[in-house]
């Protein structure tokens, strides 16, 4: 696996640009492998840009950065295949069924396409829902498909952009449950949120972003030795 000494995420004065605008204006962040970090902050604080930087999708304009032993911006390409990103838009094909979407992604990642059925069953996408084109599913169901994708792909870094937003109670619980499971399996999780009540209990670390930098950092409510249900 990885070098135990190196943190999963290491950023120093990281700056990222959108055109000429500095969306990230000097972020410092260290996270250990297998930890869960929740990022709070107002709209436009740079939360989503931070996730995209960590995914290797936005180049590091200045500063230092290394994610999963890949230095940024040089090794962003190598980094990407270890990253799973789930945003408001799940980034799948509307014309394809959930299972077809998953099988495409799994084949592209050189994984067994058969994993898709278990993953979909786990998030409750079965029967008719599973054979409906993704475009006709509700926002919550689509998010579930996105979660199934993460489950099946098992990336080493989970990046969740407001995973709890606009979801019903059971789906929110599912998000928290799967996140906890992933972290226990050794994955590093970074999630943005506008709902501290839901997000803080699942986190080892809670950071607040503002103006493209990390303003505060505090421990969260997650304890590695306790099951998720205890915390909830």
């Amino acid at each position: 696996m990885t070098n135990p000494m190196a943190p999963a995420i290491y950023l120093r004065s990281a700056v990222a640009l959108a055109g000429r605008f500095p969306v990230l204006a000097g972020v410092d962040l260290d996270l250990d492998e297998g930890s869960v970090c929740v990022v709070l902050g107002a709209n436009g604080a740079g939360k989503t840009s931070l996730l995209r930087l960590l995914a290797g999708l936005v180049p590091l304009a200045s500063g230092e950065g290394a994610v999963l032993d890949c230095s940024l911006p040089g090794q962003a390409r190598d980094l990407r295949q270890h990253v799973g990103l789930l945003g408001h838009d799940v980034g799948l094909y509307d014309d394809l069924r959930p299972a077809e979407n998953l099988r495409f992604v799994l084949k592209a990642s050189r994984l067994d396409p058969g994993l898709s059925d278990d993953a979909l069953a786990r998030v409750g996408i079965t029967g008719r829902t599973a054979s409906t084109p993704l475009g006709q599913l509700s926002a919550g169901q689509r998010r579930r498909v996105g979660l199934a994708l993460l489950l099946a792909r098992r990336p080493r870094l989970w990046l969740l952009d407001e995973p709890h937003a606009s979801l019903d109670e059971p789906t929110r619980d599912l998000v928290s449950e799967l996140t906890e499971e992933a972290a226990r399996g050794g994955a590093t999780v970074v999630a943005t949120s506008h709902e501290p009540d839901l997000a803080i209990p699942m986190a080892d670390t809670v950071v607040t972003m503002s103006g493209g930098i990390i303003a505060t950092r505090a421990p969260g409510g997650r304890r590695g030795d306790r099951g998720w249900s205890d915390v909830a």
Partner: peptide, 10 residues
């Protein structure tokens, strides 16, 4: 978002 997720596939 879809383009991004394809870029993550390597």
């Amino acid at each position: 978002a879809t383009r991004d997720s394809v870029r993550l596939l390597g």
